[in-house]
């Protein structure tokens, strides 16, 4: 057990060092990442127009700003940036043979790398994120209940698992097709709109919101933010967390299943 833990700690360390090498890359990426946030804030300010005191779909102007700021934070924390391309690359280039010989479980190996990327990435960006929250401080309200923090942490963790397993499952397609980018981008464009990154999903027409609620996408981002803003509580919170956990299991089964099927097909090309 300790040996296993030590092994994956090494992997974690390697991932962290890799991330650190490319820290400028990350910093730049996040500087550019602020531009859409600026646009979003201006757009919604214009939406509220002459009457900033009113509410749109139950959001005050400040709550919307908080919604988008938190979305950016959670997105940075849980969205894989490179993992699917790296995994697909390892399959395509035949590097998998080398990795298969190592005494590690490939999924656990990749997950450790993913976790270390995300944590270090967030750590590198923390000053920037703190600055954004400072600039927007008049709109920021922290949760009133201590339990909310716990629920938020749990929900963000589950969101990370869903996002990772989706990325992993997509990358498994590289066992069958040479170029996975189109499929990745098709899924990505659906995730982009239905994860709540562009607008809060409770602004959708009720029939559509009721449907989207059962898809995995809101649980990748929207749901944790709702938990943080205490817009969901009690029974709904429990149901939401249960659906989220359900999707984690489904995506995990999908990821593992595709891996097993893929390995049967795998021939190391030039490996």
């Amino acid at each position: 057990m300790t040996a296993t833990l030590a092994k994956y700690l090494k992997v974690f360390n390697v991932g962290a060092q890799n991330t650190f090498v490319y820290r400028w890359n990350f910093i730049l990426r996040s500087v550019f990442g602020i531009v859409p946030l600026i646009g979003t804030i201006y757009l919604w300010r214009a939406m509220f127009g002459a009457d900033p005191g009113r509410q749109l779909s139950g959001y005050t102007y400040s709550q919307l700003i908080l919604y988008f700021a938190m979305s950016i934070f959670v997105e940075n924390l849980v969205t894989p940036t490179d993992d699917e391309w790296q995994i697909a690359g390892e399959i395509r280039d035949g590097k998998m043979s080398f990795l298969l010989l190592k005494p590690v479980n490939y999924l656990a190996y990749r997950f450790t790398l993913y976790a270390s990327y995300r944590l270090l990435y967030t750590a590198v960006l923390l000053p920037g994120i703190a600055l954004i929250f400072f600039v927007l401080r008049e709109h920021i309200t922290l949760p009133a209940h201590g339990m909310t923090w716990l629920a938020f942490a749990a929900s963000t963790g589950l969101a990370a698992l869903i996002q990772f397993f989706i990325a992993y499952a997509l990358a498994m397609l590289a066992f069958w097709i040479l170029e996975i980018s189109t499929v990745v981008f098709i899924v990505f464009s659906i995730e982009y709109f239905l994860s709540g990154l562009v607008f809060p999903l409770d602004m959708l027409p009720p029939w559509l919101a009721a449907f989207v609620k059962w898809t995995p996408f809101p649980y990748e981002l929207y749901f944790p933010v709702q938990v943080f803003m205490e817009r969901v509580g009690g029974r709904d919170l429990a149901i939401g967390l249960a659906i989220q956990a359900g999707w984690v299991v489904v995506m995990w089964l999908l990821a593992v299943g595709l891996w097993r099927l893929g390995l049967r097909r795998y021939q190391a090309v030039g490996g």
């Binding site: 757009l43 214009a46 939406m47 749109l56 562009v198 607008f199 602004m203 959708l204 027409p205």
Partner: peptide, 14 residues
């Protein structure tokens, strides 16, 4: 769809 959502909230933007 995003525009549809925005104009579900208000009649005009700026």
């Amino acid at each position: 769809a995003f525009i549809e959502v925005l104009y579900g909230q208000v009649d005009e933007i700026a």
